[in-house]
Nucleic acid binder design. Structure first.
Lengths: 244, 244
DNA sequence: CCAAAAGTGTTAGTCTTACACCCATGC
DNA sequence: GCATGGGTGTAAGACTAACACTTTTGG
């Protein structure tokens, strides 16, 4: 019996089906370091361990809709930059039953990150450190405050590592960095984002020119306030048309 | 009721679950053009239209295992470079029932592509053309022989476009191109792959040097045979350690 | 010896980086 | 006016591309 025929004659009720979930990697850059929001598990399995917020996909909603719903429910926020990351489908990734999980990552500016943390007390902020410099680094470490590196529930550590890798990879050619900044920002703030995520230092004039030459930035004419030195110009991200 | 509690108390049997499928984009470069293998649908919906080979994910197999099983069943081959692409989860993407599909792409050298085509007569080879040059191009066109552009079943056209974009994006920084070549190959063959996929021409000496400077290539000492001119050196891909 | 494609050396151009300096603001 | 970080000009360096040329094979 060939596969096409099999597919056609497939009776959905006749076979056991996996559950499908969505897990969110809520990321930001806080105080010069990449950070992620985690929940704590209060049930078996993995009781007490930290985990990514997540939930099941309803039969009547798309994956993207599920991700947005969970974002609203968990972090009390609508509209964030959100992007599908990868689908994790190992048979034993959840000890209870077969659950396939589609990981999404969401990027937030630090102020909205802080607001989410306030309105959702079950969430905790973990700082990320990337031990091995260079693109192809191994697993990253997440810690809350000055604590030890966390061991996340399920395969969530893997999800987190992949999210950081993807963020690093896309940072320089996509407009992804601007999702981590407020609507108006200084070039120094943009550079801080780059330096925090890639864990390198950039030359200021070179960075400045590289960014301006891309044509993605629009000067607002406004200036930063409250500094005891020369106030920096505020820029706005002008969405490039061919943005993926 | 909060989401964590919801997740814990979730009874898998209590809710309707979607089916999960895997679809394969089997790609190669044939006669200087990117190509893909397609099946023809012989049942509703989309009868007679071309579609990507695919199948359902069994309850006891991982997504990757399902992809390899389908690869073996459809294209009669084991071991190919295979990589998860994206998961498509629109509610109405399949008119019959809710099916979430995880798209994988597999890359094959032209000779094994031809072999698959012979041993699996239900497959057809479609050449791909990318109308809009430049990374962020729109939908790509697939055609069989000299025919009109095909309209693929379901959202398979979208999958195909995404696969081509990913292939283009990863070509130059990952070892992905070598999956499209036999184990030993000439630098000219490698350049042909690049030119076919990116739809550009490269300067021969510059390309040559750029590739050799990466350290991914290992000269075998052997030479091409059968040419009526100076035979080219055969190289082998030396897997970089930090390859993702 | 000729045609054809492999392979190499050198030069020119472009893009990125580094450094030095000037500018504007609060105290 | 001084400290501090924003912003600009110029020179040096690295990387990439283009061209001309040499080499090696079969006929």
């Amino acid at each position: 019996m060939d596969e096409a025929a099999f597919l056609e004659n497939y009776d959905p009720a006749a076979y056991e089906r996996p559950s499908v979930a969505v897990d969110l990697i809520l990321m930001s850059v806080v105080d010069g370091a990449p950070a992620v929001l985690l929940t704590r598990r209060d049930q078996h399995p993995f009781v007490g361990q930290r985990a990514l917020p997540g939930g099941f996909v309803g039969i009547g909603e798309s994956l993207d809709e599920a991700a947005h719903r969970i974002l609203a429910a968990k972090a009390r926020m609508s509209d964030a930059y959100i992007e599908q990351l990868y689908t994790f489908g190992a048979v034993d990734r959840d000890p209870r039953t077969r659950i396939i999980s589609v990981a999404y990552f969401a990027l937030l500016p630090a102020d909205r990150f802080a607001a989410a943390l306030k309105s959702a007390p079950e969430l905790a902020l973990a700082e990320l450190t990337v031990p091995w410099r260079g693109e192809t680094g191994g697993p990253i470490e997440a810690r809350i405050g000055d604590g030890d590196p966390l061991h996340l529930a399920f395969d969530h550590g893997e999800m987190l590592s992949l999210a950081v890798r993807r963020l690093r990879g896309k940072l320089d050619y996509s407009g992804i960095a601007f999702a981590l900044l407020p609507e108006r920002f200084t070039l120094r703030a943009l550079q801080d984002i780059y330096e925090a995520i890639l864990d390198t230092k950039f030359n200021k004039p070179a960075f400045r020119r590289r960014m301006l030459d891309r044509g993605w930035l629009e000067a607002t004419g406004e200036r930063e306030t409250g500094a005891s030195f020369r106030p920096a110009e505020l820029y706005r991200y002008r969405q490039a048309e061919g943005e993926q």
